[in-house]
């Protein structure tokens, strides 16, 4: 094959090798380094050393550094209670809840590329996602089911923390952060419910926000609301919906709460939640059991 360049001589048919001691291949092979040498050299480069701050051979020090010198892993301590890694103690629920939050952020961001939060367009965009966007239906399903699963895992995480007495001193404050995260998890799910702009979301949010008009003092149908001058056009429900009915403004407000405001609030609370786990003495147990006879008041 001449590749169309007639003046270039054709390449030799036999590769340079054992039979050709002066060949390029032999010369290169003489210079070649073993994989171990290469690895050692690679690890000695400025680039490598700038990325990895510790050696990788298996030692207690490096195992600790692997966790402590990584921004993603350093929320962990270097060592944990040997029984805390048992599934039966934590059920993995807190971690699974956070992982679902991550999955929801990823799928949610991708969904935002295809979604216009306005009447008419919103529903059409969901149809578009389901039928035209590559993997759009999978994306939407993942987001939906991860959201429902996250509500369940949040409840179960809370139940685990209660049942193992992990809210007791010194972790009282972190339980409170957790209660707020429970609230915001459900609000995240609720605000997302309206976004497809279908009958299901519309009536669910109508039912949900109708409660707000019965807010005492601040709702126009709540106790002492009308007496204070609240009507359907200035009460707390109006503020939530941007109107007196669930319509275009409500869709936009739900979208902004769902995609920007609540995720930011929840993320800040998550940071505090994780930080306090470490500051309050890492995972609560399985702690050595205490006996009633040993407690002195």
């Amino acid at each position: 094959m001449s590749h169309g360049h007639d003046e270039v001589p054709p390449e030799p048919e036999t590769p340079a090798g054992e039979g050709n001691p002066g060949g390029l291949f032999t010369k290169l092979r003489a210079k070649a380094k073993s994989p171990a040498q290469l690895q050692a050299e690679l690890k000695n480069t400025q680039v490598w050393k700038s990325i990895f701050r510790h050696k990788l051979d298996d030692s207690a020090r490096n195992r600790s550094l692997a966790v402590l010198s990584s921004v993603f892993l350093h929320l962990h301590p270097a060592r944990v209670n040997r029984d805390a890694v048992r599934y039966n103690f934590t059920w993995g629920m807190g971690g699974i809840t956070f992982y679902l939050f991550v999955l929801l952020t990823l799928t949610g961001t991708l969904l935002m590329f295809y979604f216009h939060p306005s009447k008419g367009e919103a529903y059409r965009d969901i149809m578009f996602l389901q039928h035209d966007v590559p993997f759009g239906n999978l994306l939407r399903n993942m987001h939906r089911w991860c959201a429902h699963a996250m509500v369940i895992t949040t409840w179960l995480h809370m139940m685990r923390v209660f049942m193992s007495g992990s809210y007791k001193p010194p972790r009282e404050f972190n339980w409170n952060i957790g209660v707020l995260l429970l609230l915001f998890t459900m609000l995240l799910s609720f605000t997302g419910y309206l976004l497809p702009d279908d009958q299901l979301g519309f009536w669910a949010v109508t039912v949900g926000t109708n409660m707000a008009r019965a807010t005492p003092v601040m709702g126009h149908e709540g106790p002492f609301g009308p007496e204070l001058g609240f009507t359907a056009f200035n009460d707390v429900r109006f503020a939530l919906l941007g109107g007196s009915v669930v319509d275009a403004n409500a869709l936009l407000r739900a979208y902004i709460w769902h995609c920007i405001a609540i995720p930011i609030i929840a993320s800040v609370l998550l940071i505090v939640h994780f930080w306090r786990i470490r500051k309050d003495g890492a995972i609560s147990g399985p702690a050595p059991v205490m006996l009633a006879s040993e407690i002195t008041d």
Partner: peptide, 15 residues
Amino acid sequence: WSICLDAPLEEPANP
């Protein structure tokens, strides 16, 4: 789960 079960989508919102 997401492959096996589709998220619900009903008719467009109709007050």
